[in-house]
Structure formats: structure tokens, C-alpha cells
């Protein structure tokens, strides 16, 4: 069985179903997400359930715009813990991700110490005794007081646990990946001057990747792996209904069918869910009731982000629109 410390404070919506069967728990997670506006299929809910039960980080991969980051946010909302986010980029290093010493304070400390040194040393006989007396003071120079926590350390220190989102891991360097291994497998970090710091409550960790490069095996091994593909028609319709409720059903079905058709084409960048949502909002703004070729042409730049793609699709807009209207019936 997964190790779940009895004292672990779990959020009600998960802990209340802990005794029940796995399916019930998964369904309740799914419903919880739905309440906060994140529509997902059972496979995503299963992964959240397992990540929470096994206390393992969850590596989420998939094309941009399918809701990887959203998933972490929705989970944070569901479990009622703060979301701590670490955006990765090339050149990110431990001083920005983990901790930094408060140099200014440290310098002040040395200044103060120097001034007070005279007082401290009064009555000390000779050098030896002075040094011995100096040694009696705690070594506060490298102590937690002078530690400036960055996202990772913050997540470990957060009382009651947190949801830690390490976003776009593929943008960071290989070294950074290696450096994450300790925190991912044991929820602890080593600071050379202080020793090991363990998590007060293990955070729920999400890592996301757009697959611009292959994530190392060592890291993958420590994580659960969730691949989120583009949603199918039914799911996408539900997402739009939840996110843009103003759109009428017929139009919603049409535009989802259109986007689904668009994904079949050979495009540089396929429109993701986020683009569909934007497009639906555009339609609301334009007071559109029905999809037509002219309207699609005018708003195509919401869906497609490359001029090449727009040019390519332009010729097929008529056919695609007709097909979408057919399919939506």
C-alpha cells in the first residue's frame, strides 16, 4: 500500500472519500474540478488521485494549450492549498529556484559583530581566550534567518503543504533537472551550509513539459507521467460550455466541430483548447449566432498563430465550415 502518514492533513474533498473505492474518489475529484470550471476526463482525474495517494510528483506532457498549467491551478483550488509556481527558463539555477543567502543582512551582521566585538572581548585574557569566547557564539552567519527561500524551499516550508508547479521544465538546463531529483524523490533539499531540510508536509508536485526536449530518464522514473492530448469533441464541448457559458449550444457545437476539423490538417501549430476558448469568446463579442465562412475568415487569427497556417487554411475555410455545420447537427 502507499504510505500515507495518518497525520497527513488532506483536504476534505479527497480525504472524505479515502475510505471508499478508488473509482468513487476519482469521480469525486472529477466533480470537484468541474465545480471550479476545469473539465477533464477520468484519466486526468486518475492521475491526480494516484499522485496524491502515492505521494509522487506528476509529470504532465502534451501540446501547448491543453490545460497543463490549469490542471495544477485547479488542483490547488480543489485541495485548498496555496499554489507555488516556478517558471523554468534556460539559465535557471539554484539561487533562483531554491534559496539564496540574504547577503545584505549577512554583511550588516558582520559589521554589527565587529562593533560589538570590543564589548564581547572585555576581560578576555590574550588571543586564545578571545577566540574561545568567539566560538561560544552560535554560528548565525549561515542560519535559516539569513536564508531567502525561493519557490522550491517555500513549497517545502509551507505549513500544511502546498501545490508546487514546476512549469515548462523542458526550458531549463539538464543540470537543473538533476538538481530536482532530490526534492522529487524525498521531498527534501540539501543546503551545504545547513544540512538537509525536509518538507514539513510533502507538497503535491506538478511538472509540465512541452516536449521541446526529452526529459531525462532519472526524472521520469521518479514521476507519474500524464499525457494530455487534444480533447475529443464531447469533452471540448463541455469545456467550452463551462468556460464560455454565453455561447449558445448550436454555435458551440459548430465551432468545436470546426476546430476539430482544423486539427486534422497539417499545420505548424494546431489550435489548442485555449484557442477554442478564445475563439468562443470572440464569437460572443461579435454577437454571432451561426458560423459562416466570412466570419471564420475574419476571426481565423484567433485560432491560428502563423501567417502560413492562415494562408493554407484560407482556401479550405468554406469546406471546413460546411462540414462543421453538418457535424454539429
Amino acid at each position: 500500500m502507499a504510505k500515507i502518514a495518518p497525520g497527513t492533513k488532506l483536504n476534505k474533498s479527497i480525504s472524505s472519500v479515502n475510505e471508499g473505492s478508488a473509482e468513487a474518489a476519482i469521480t469525486s475529484i472529477q466533480q470537484g474540478f468541474e465545480r471550479s470550471g476545469y473539465i477533464c476526463n477520468s484519466s486526468i482525474a486518475t492521475s491526480i488521485f494516484l499522485a496524491e495517494r502515492l505521494q509522487k510528483p506528476l509529470l504532465v506532457e502534451g501540446p501547448p494549450g491543453v490545460g497543463k498549467t490549469e490542471l495544477a491551478k485547479a488542483t490547488a483550488e480543489l485541495v485548498g492549498k496555496p499554489l507555488i509556481r516556478l517558471q523554468c527558463y534556460e539559465g535557471l539555477d539554484e539561487s533562483k529556484a531554491l534559496y539564496e543567502w540574504k547577503y545584505g543582512k549577512q554583511l550588516l551582521y558582520t559589521q554589527v559583530l565587529k562593533e560589538k566585538l570590543g564589548d564581547l572581548m572585555t576581560g578576555a585574557q590574550g588571543l586564545k581566550e578571545s577566540i574561545a569566547r568567539l566560538h561560544d557564539f552560535d554560528d548565525t552567519f549561515f542560519s535559516e534567518e539569513f536564508l531567502e527561500p525561493r519557490p522550491l524551499l517555500k513549497a517545502l516550508w509551507q505549513p500544511g503543504g502546498a501545490v508546487l508547479l514546476i512549469d515548462e521544465l523542458d526550458k531549463s538546463d539538464d543540470e537543473f533537472e538533476a538538481f530536482l531529483l532530490e526534492i522529487l524523490s524525498d521531498y527534501q533539499i540539501s543546503i551545504p551550509e545547513l544540512g538537509t531540510i525536509k518538507a514539513r508536509t510533502p507538497p503535491i508536485v506538478f511538472l509540465t513539459s512541452n516536449n521541446t526536449r526529452e526529459i531525462g530518464d532519472a526524472l521520469k522514473r521518479r514521476c507519474l507521467h500524464l499525457y494530455i492530448p487534444f480533447p475529443d469533441t464531447a469533452l471540448e464541448q463541455r469545456i467550452i460550455r463551462s468556460r464560455v457559458p454565453e455561447v449558445e449550444e448550436s454555435l458551440r457545437n459548430q465551432l468545436v466541430a470546426f476546430v476539430q476539423g482544423l486539427r486534422q490538417l497539417d499545420l505548424k501549430k494546431q489550435p489548442a483548447v485555449s484557442e477554442t476558448i478564445d475563439w468562443a469568446r470572440t464569437m460572443v463579442l461579435l454577437h454571432a449566432k451561426e458560423l459562416d465562412a466570412e466570419l471564420v475568415r475574419r476571426t481565423l487569427n484567433v485560432l491560428l498563430k502563423f501567417q502560413d497556417d492562415i494562408d493554407n487554411v484560407d482556401a479550405e475555410v468554406n469546406a471546413l465550415t460546411t462540414k462543421a455545420i453538418e457535424a454539429a447537427r
Binding site: 484519466s43 486518475t46 526529452e214 507521467h225 499525457y227
Partner: peptide, 12 residues
């Protein structure tokens, strides 16, 4: 299937 796929298969 979902559960096992998340621990056993780790790429697309």
C-alpha cells in the same frame, strides 16, 4: 489502464 499507464509508460 489509466493508473498503470501513468507509472509504466512515460512518453507519447
Amino acid at each position: 489502464r489509466d493508473g498503470l499507464s501513468q507509472v509504466l509508460a512515460k512518453s507519447e
